[in-house]
Design a protein around this nucleic acid. Structure first.
Lengths: 340, 340
DNA sequence: AATTGTCTTGAATACGTATTCTCGGCTGGT
DNA sequence: ACCAGCCGAGAATACGTATTCAAGACAATT
């Protein structure tokens, strides 16, 4: 059967052909006579030959590998995305080299360098910011980069996000239609465009109807920070009747505090709206009204754009925003006659 | 600064030395005179040189890459483990190539072959079963394999699990001490040793005290199946007063059904115990009593064992079981004077 | 029938690095 | 002062494949 290391030479010898012929048999799009191809394939099969991807990559310059950097997986939105990314890239023939990076620029830079050493064909940054030193380096190396769920001021680098500004607006409209008077916002991390845009859209949406938030706090995309913000909010005299939370992950923490510490029931005593629509949002315990980020379409967009840049069919960088609907559940009062 | 592709030859030329000297500078454990080393490092820095890992791997036969195959990430226990694995392996100088595989043997085989083509130094299977064809192939190639949170009857392949049998026993003891009379079990998938061992330990624990489960159903590690099992349980005349659920992920579904459909409060009307102690188990909404699987220690064990087999310091395969405590929270009645 | 062209295949080379081998120079011991 | 031994660096080679180049066979065109 298969011995430990079978090379193209071994197969060539067994089939009575030259090594390049073996290579041609395993290279799509290259033509070999039917007779030889059959001999080669048989020899390869009995010897258990499989081409060495490393050697192939070394010469073609294509590793067929994508580097993926993720900051954290606490937020299930990213695990969902990771799962879909993995499947989609695999369908397209690419592999994933994954790294977890703390969100410090130095750590990210280090990880990117590691990826470049491995000759990855492209890099996806999921919820991680890219320093300009880093983008310069990548441009220089000619390795495409794309941000997932993270905006970037530099339009020359690609990014896929949901329509965060519009999403924020939708929530504002929904809460105002519900007749809420004292609306608070526990925002996503303001250091990220994702968080800032949702916040800006929300505030703009309120302003359109002459309203204003009674409180805006940065929840830093963290459960603990959001929980603390909730306690502070109700310890003050503000007495909010609605809270828009920058993502579902934080919204769950807010609901937990409301219910178990403040004895307030979401949807009755206070309205809570999140952002993402992760699977857990539909679980009965939370039943969270939230803006859906369509992970499927976002992942498709990321893959299409990135591989387009790699393979040259879509060389120009793009910011892609994907619109998502407001999913109305029970955690926030539903306006009379709301149909949208 | 850095141009697109800088090779060791370029650096050698710039520093006025030979290519092998450059290689030696970047190979730990090889000695080069201080003067030359300095010249080489400076030239490398100004040119922006970094060694090409592919070329290095091709010749050394070490890719410094570990293949990781995961079945699903719905269960947060695995995302937690993935995060820790990533950090730990990176500290040890290894990279991760990740694949999601459906739990069909054919899919796993395909993925493993892809990994082998990439010359990975070792493979981790997380909650995925290994066919014997596959283990044979790996043994033949000399690539170490280790199972994470999955047992295997063949003792010649390594595996790290928690002490599932003992964990099940602990739950039995706890529930019996709590005076429960009609105890049901919604087990983990019986096709996996992990699920079967917990179940066996649990039943054995009951039997020790002359008790017996009123019902045992296979929950298949799935939320939907567990939810359906719960409904069936209470639609019958069994009227259980305690349910041991095969993992936390399913236990959350069970609690959701109990509370939102059956109007039963866990910890008062029914006791629910899970297994894993994922982060969510401590959230106020669930507050789940559960057996902790110490992800940290399990990951450490996986990495130590796998790298030991790769680097030859620990060549013999091992089954490692890691004991975890029962974490008592509010979802199950606490026996009088329980201190353990 | 002769010539042009196409198609197949083997020989040679390249990819970028690590390692073996060799040689020159240097140290240290007598 | 001489020689054994050692160390450091360059030349050559290897890793396993894809690709270029040249040559040969054969079909097609005039």
């Amino acid at each position: 059967m298969a011995s430990s290391k079978v090379t193209a030479h071994d197969v060539a010898q067994a089939a009575g052909v030259s090594q390049p012929t073996v290579s041609r048999v395993f290279t799509p799009g290259v033509t070999v006579s039917a007779a030889l191809e059959k001999r080669v394939r048989e020899a390869a099969k009995t010897l258990g030959y499989r081409p060495n991807t490393l050697a192939r990559s070394l010469i073609t310059g294509q590793s067929m590998t994508i580097g993926l950097i993720v900051a954290y997986l606490d937020n299930p939105f990213y695990t969902e995305a990771l799962e879909k990314l993995s499947h989609t890239l695999r369908e397209r023939g690419y592999n994933i080299m994954i790294f977890m990076a703390a969100n410090h620029a130095s750590d990210v830079d280090q990880v990117v360098h590691d990826l470049l050493d491995h000759q990855v064909d492209g890099i996806i940054l999921a919820s991680v910011a890219a320093s300009s030193a880093l983008t310069d380096r990548l441009r220089d190396e000619g390795v495409p980069l794309i941000l997932f769920n993270r905006g970037h001021s530099d339009r020359s680098i690609s990014a896929v996000t949901s329509a965060n500004f519009e999403g924020g607006q939708k929530v504002a409209e929904f809460l105002l239609s519900g007749g809420h008077q004292r609306i608070a916002h526990i925002s996503g991390w303001q250091g990220a465009l994702t968080g800032a845009d949702r916040c800006a859209g929300f505030l703009a949406g309120l302003e359109t109807q002459g309203a204003e938030a009674v409180s805006v706090t940065d929840g830093l995309f963290s459960r603990e920070t959001a929980a603390a913000a909730t306690r502070a909010l109700f310890a003050s005299s503000l007495n909010p009747d609605a809270i828009f939370v920058g993502n579902d992950h934080m919204a769950f923490a807010v609901i937990d505090v409301l219910r178990s510490e403040l004895r307030l029931e979401p949807g009755c005593d206070v309205s809570v709206v999140g952002y993402d629509d992760v699977a857990m949002a539909s679980w009965p315990s939370y039943n969270l009204t939230t803006v859906r980020q369509p992970a499927n379409r976002m992942v498709q967009a990321v893959v299409t754009q990135l591989l387009g840049q790699i393979e040259g069919s879509e060389p120009v960088a793009k910011h892609i925003e994907i619109d998502g609907p407001l999913i109305v559940r029970g955690s926030a009062r539903i306006p009379q006659g709301w149909t949208r």
